[in-house]
């Protein structure tokens, strides 16, 4: 199923997840080495989605543990089902009375009940939470520990234990250990740096914003109705927007949202007016929107209008051909001798 990097890439593609070789390589290795993966990267680049599609592609049940501040062991692992215990006590009231009949003191009664403890603290009354479910899952599962950076350090330490041997002990009941280790994906937005200990246990995957070509393919898959030319222009704007210094850089989800919005508006092509009106779909902060407004002219470069590039940089062209000075490119000084032409001498 996941027997090579190419198949990983293809299988994920079939689930509508477009990824480069780097992502496929790490997923493949996680699968082969049975190691958890810590996925990091900016918001909305598809970290959570990756875990979901891997689950789908491998046919593993997806078990998701959403982390947040204050998440504790009980909520992640298991809880006693008090109401059920209570219900049972009610139903078994008579039996209790029988058991307690003849107890002379309160203490003796309590001791007799205590002797029956095990009835109430057995797996009958355990509500398994994601971690326990992943460990006891009859078929190999995919455990997604989402936004692990939101959890508290104490919880991280606990998580570390679980991840190292996939075994948990419930004091009153016994030890559960995974028959087959689940595949584990942890995602993080870098709200807090994870400890080295946790990182050592995991393979690391950094997902960056997609390349222009990948983003186009994602649009193709996610918003199939959108016109090719429009998609190209739109992705172009997104890619250039990401180069601005924004408070929140728009991500893949924003690209998708924007494409859907433009589709709904029946937009035929991207121009300044349209971008200005719909910018609030992609940018959430007033400051960011203002910044984008001031850069509008530069953001929109439609394919058709783009100044024709010289077909191939001629070997003898020591100075850039046109005046289109791209920032960052080092213009070659006029004094510099032109590098000899290919093939003129031999």
């Amino acid at each position: 199923m996941f027997d090579s990097i190419e198949t990983v890439q293809r299988n994920l593609g079939e689930q509508g997840y477009i990824c480069g070789k780097n992502i496929a390589t790490v997923v493949y290795l996680a699968h082969r080495l049975e190691k958890p993966v810590l996925v990091e990267g900016p918001a909305g680049v598809g970290k959570t989605e990756l875990a979901k599609v891997v689950a789908e592609a491998t046919g593993r049940p997806l078990i998701r543990l959403q982390c947040y501040e204050g998440l504790d062991e009980a909520k992640a692992l298991y809880e006693w089902e008090y109401s059920k215990q209570l219900l049972y006590t009610q139903i078994l009231k008579e039996k209790f009375s029988e058991a307690m009949a003849g107890a002379k003191t309160l203490r003796e009664a309590a001791e007799r009940i205590g002797a029956e403890d095990s009835i109430f603290f057995s797996d009958r009354f355990i509500v398994p939470r994601p971690l326990l479910r992943a460990i006891t899952s009859p078929s190999p599962a995919l455990l997604l520990v989402d936004e692990v950076d939101k959890s508290d350090p104490e919880f991280e330490a606990f998580l570390l234990e679980v991840l190292s041997d996939f075994q948990v002990t419930v004091p009153e009941v016994g030890t559960f250990s995974a028959k087959v280790r689940p595949l584990v994906f942890l995602t993080s937005n870098d709200a807090r740096e994870m400890t080295d200990a946790l990182k050592r246990r995991c393979l690391h995957l950094y997902i960056d914003f997609p390349t222009e070509e990948e983003e186009l393919r994602i649009l193709d898959v996610k918003v199939p109705g959108v016109d090719r030319r429009l998609a190209e222009d739109l992705v172009g704007v997104m890619q250039r927007l990401r180069k601005l210094d924004l408070k929140k850089t728009p991500s893949i989800s924003e690209t998708i949202d924007w494409a859907r919005a433009l589709l709904a508006l029946n937009a035929a092509q991207i121009d300044e007016a349209l971008v200005r009106e719909t910018l609030n779909v992609i940018l959430k902060y007033e400051g960011d929107i203002r910044k984008a407004h001031s850069e509008l002219g530069r953001l929109i470069v439609r394919k058709a209008e783009a100044p024709p590039k010289p077909a191939a940089p001629a070997p003898s062209a020591a100075t850039p051909a046109s005046g289109e000075a791209t920032p960052g490119a080092q213009p070659v000084g006029p004094a510099a001798p032109a590098p000899p032409k290919k093939g003129t001498l031999h």
Binding site: T25, L29, L38, E193
Partner: peptide, 21 residues
């Protein structure tokens, strides 16, 4: 687990195991 003739894969595989920040 990999064939090493793809440089990019080689790089990414090693990176995932050794570089965590």
């Amino acid at each position: 687990e990999l064939s090493l003739d793809d440089r990019e894969i080689f790089r990414d595989a090693m990176r995932s195991a050794m570089v965590k920040r």
